[in-house]
Computed example of a mutant assay.
Amino acid sequence: MRVCLVTADPEHPLLAATTELLTDRHQVEFLDPASWTGPAEPIDASPAGLADVYLLKARTPRALALAALLEERGAVVINSAVATARCQDRVEMAERARAAGLPFAESRYVPALTQLAAAGEPPGPLVIKSRHSRRHDLVARADSAAQLRALAAAWPDEPVIVQEFTANSGWDHKLWVVDGHLFAARRRSELAPEGRGPTLPLPVADLPASWTGPALRVGEVFGLEVYGVDILDAGGGAPLIVDINAFPGIRGQAGAPEALAELAVRAAVRATKPLPFSRTPITNTPPLPAS
């Protein structure tokens, strides 16, 4: 089998361990979306040209555009471009999760942070997040109008979502799923007074079914096979989902590379080989978004 990892960082611990498991019997390739020049670049979409399965670790706009084109040419991509994009837009994420009955934090969209700051004193502590999830995006707590003005000065035109701050222990519970296999850890939240802390192991057996059930259902609701769910204890053990990530790092979790390798092989085996296509670029493909 030919397995292609769509990533700018093939040395990432999860990917490196998965590659080591696969290379004895399969061919592993790497594709950096940054090296792709756009839809006009010819792609070999013959059965011999496409890999049997692509693992979409990168989540930049360029990576999503590349994954969408590969899928259009008949490739098997995990997670799909559409499913990944759902987790990049926090407005769509919240709407989809809450519509499905998942215990997701109530979220309000504000087109620009300056609008929120102009509203004056907030009724209580707020969590402010960039609408579009990306590296180095905005995630902050604001308890006062002064703090909102400071954020607006630094991020004046940033579209954001706003959530009421939920009192909690200061620890995020990180639940990761790879093809139905559940892994867990806990990490001190970046919103805690002490700031972000280390990630500590958390046995899945210690989690209540009221947490693991919704975490596993996220895959069905969002069409994801590899994903992460951030959960807070909202009081009395009630779970509150505050974020969902497509293809997270899942560092230091025994069994995660094995589960990912098994998923890749199984997806490649069950996939129907695509029919031959012309190498002529597709003319109606949207323009390449900025990285």
Rank of each mutant, 00 (worst) to 15 (best):
L31M: 15
D32K: 12
P33N: 08
A34V: 14
A34N: 12
A34E: 14
A34G: 09
S35C: 10
S35G: 10
S35D: 12
W36L: 02
W36F: 06
W36N: 04
P39H: 09
P39M: 00
A40Q: 14
E41G: 06
E41R: 09
E41I: 06
P42Y: 04
P42Q: 02
P42T: 09
I43T: 07
I43H: 01
D44N: 14
A45M: 07
S46L: 12
P47I: 11
P47W: 11
A48T: 15
A48I: 12
G49I: 07
L50C: 08
L50A: 04
A51M: 12
D52Y: 05
D52I: 04
D52C: 12
Y54L: 09
Y54S: 02
L55K: 05
L55H: 07
L56T: 05
L56C: 06
K57N: 09
R59F: 15
R59I: 14
R62A: 06
A63H: 04
L64A: 10
A65R: 00
A65N: 02
L66R: 00
L66W: 01
L66T: 10
L66H: 02
A68T: 10
A68K: 02
L69A: 07
L70S: 00
L70F: 06
E71I: 06
E71L: 00
E71M: 07
E71H: 00
R73A: 13
V77K: 03
I78T: 00
I78N: 00
I78V: 15
N79G: 00
N79C: 10
S80E: 01
S80G: 13
S80Y: 03
